[in-house]
Computed example of a mutant assay.
Amino acid sequence: MTKSATHRRKLSLSATMMASSSSPTSPPNPVATTSSPYFLPELIPQIASCLTTLQDFFAVRATYRDLLPPSSSNLASQAPHLLLVPGSRAMFHLPLRRRLRFRLPLHDFDPNLAAFYSFGCRIAMASPIHHELSFVHLLTGERFRLPYPPAPFCRLLLSGDLVLAFVPTVGHAVQYCRLGDVEWRVASCTEPYVPEDLIFLKGNLHALVRSEDAGGLCYRLAVANLSDKNTVELMFLGDNLDTQAAHGSSYFCLAECLDELLLISAVGDCPEEFHVFRWQSMEGKWTRTTSLGDCTLFLTYFYFVGCVVPTKGMTCFSGYYFASSLGPDHPGVRRDCLYFTDAKRKWIEYSLADGSCDAFVAENLEGAARPDSDFRAPVWVFPSMC
Rank of each mutant, 00 (worst) to 15 (best):
M1G: 14
T2G: 06
H7T: 14
A15G: 09
T16V: 13
T25M: 13
S26Y: 03
P28R: 06
P30E: 06
S35A: 15
S36T: 12
P37T: 07
Y38I: 14
F39G: 01
L40D: 08
L43R: 01
P45D: 07
V60S: 02
T63G: 00
Y64N: 09
L68R: 01
P70H: 07
S71N: 03
S71F: 06
Q78M: 15
Q78A: 04
L83H: 02
V85T: 14
P86F: 12
G87I: 08
R89H: 11
L94V: 15
L96S: 12
R101F: 15
F102A: 04
R103C: 11
R103A: 10
P105L: 13
L113W: 05
A115M: 09
G120S: 05
C121R: 14
I123N: 03
S127R: 08
S127D: 05
E142I: 01
F144L: 07
L146Y: 07
P149C: 10
A151F: 06
L158N: 01
G160D: 12
G160N: 09
A165I: 11
P168Q: 01
P168R: 00
T169W: 10
H172C: 10
A173Q: 06
Y176N: 01
C177L: 15
R178Y: 07
V182K: 14
Y193N: 02
P195W: 11
E196V: 14
N204E: 14
H206K: 11
A207G: 08
S211R: 08
E212G: 00
G215H: 03
G216Q: 02
Y219I: 09
A222V: 10
A224T: 05
D228E: 14
V232P: 03
E233R: 02
D239N: 03
N240K: 05
T243M: 11
Y251I: 01
F252W: 15
L258T: 05
D259F: 05
S265L: 11
V267S: 04
G268I: 10
C270V: 13
E273N: 11
F274A: 03
R278Q: 09
Q280F: 09
T289W: 04
T289K: 08
G293H: 06
T300A: 15
G313K: 01
C316L: 12
S324T: 14
H330A: 15
G332A: 02
R335L: 12
R335F: 12
D342T: 11
A343M: 10
K346H: 12
K346E: 08
L352P: 07
D354Q: 01
G355D: 04
D358M: 12
F360M: 03
N364H: 02
A368R: 00
A369P: 00
P371F: 10
D374A: 13
P383R: 02
